[in-house]
Simulated assay, not measured.
Amino acid sequence: MILGIGSDLANIDRIEGALARFGDRFRNRVFTEAEQRKAEGRREVAATYAKRWAAKEACSKALGTGLRMGIAWKDMAVTNLRSGQPVMHVTGWAAERLAQMTPAGHEAVIHVTLTDDHPWAQAFVVIEARPLGPPAAGG
């Protein structure tokens, strides 16, 4: 069952401007150390940050809160599997909100997809509740 859906479109040039203007203050307020390492190791640094910014916005929308109600930027973080597939991790208040949304007997799975085509970066997040344990016999 789908618990939440969120999407966001971020302007790469706007994120690049924030990086130039605020530098580490911006990076450290919004992005985890792992996200910063990933972005700084890429050729398209601003696009990488913009995709993660969009993912955080999309995740907050899927959680039903937007970036308010105590949710912090770094409560949501994107890493990548070896295959390159992005994975959303939540901690703090975002994890608490996710637990509140998840029905008993289910686990929450957050799906995220990212893309960019200058000057835009886009993210979609879908939060799914999957039943725990084996399927019921006899349907």
Rank of each mutant, 00 (worst) to 15 (best):
A77P: 10
I110R: 13
H89F: 05
G23T: 03
A10P: 07
E33W: 00
L98Y: 13
S83C: 09
L9M: 12
L98A: 14
G17D: 12
R68Y: 01
D13P: 05
P131D: 07
V45I: 12
A136T: 15
A99C: 13
V126Q: 12
A104Q: 15
I2P: 11
E35I: 03
A104E: 15
P131L: 06
T65R: 07
D116F: 05
R14S: 11
A72L: 08
L67A: 04
G17H: 11
I12F: 06
G133Y: 09
W120F: 14
A62R: 03
W73R: 08
V109A: 13
L19W: 03
R25K: 13
A34G: 10
A54W: 01
I5G: 08
L3Y: 05
G92K: 11
A62I: 05
R25F: 00
M88D: 08
R29K: 14
A58H: 04
A136H: 12
N80Q: 10
E96F: 03
D117L: 07
G84F: 03
Q36A: 03
A18H: 08
S83R: 07
A94H: 00
I71G: 08
A94Y: 00
Q36T: 09
A95S: 15
D13W: 00
S7T: 15
R42A: 13
R52E: 02
A62K: 03
T48I: 00
A72K: 13
G23R: 12
P135W: 01
R43S: 06
E33M: 01
H118L: 05
G23V: 02
M76T: 10
V90E: 13
P131R: 14
P103H: 10
H111V: 08
E35F: 01
L63S: 07
G84R: 09
H118D: 13
N28K: 09
Y49K: 05
M101D: 15
A18R: 11
L63R: 06
R130S: 10
R21C: 03
R25W: 01
V45P: 04
A54T: 06
H111E: 14
A123M: 10
A99I: 06
T102Q: 14
R21K: 14
R29A: 07
A58K: 05
E16R: 15
E128Y: 09
K74C: 06
E33T: 10
A137Q: 15
I5L: 14
M76F: 04
D75F: 02
T115P: 14
R130G: 09
E35T: 05
A99V: 08
R82C: 02
A50E: 03
W53Q: 02
E107H: 13
A47K: 01
F31T: 09
G41P: 10
W53S: 03
L81V: 02
Q100M: 13
K51H: 00
G139E: 14
E40I: 01
V109C: 13
G138F: 06
R82F: 01
W120A: 15
T65E: 08
S83Y: 05
R68W: 00
A34P: 04
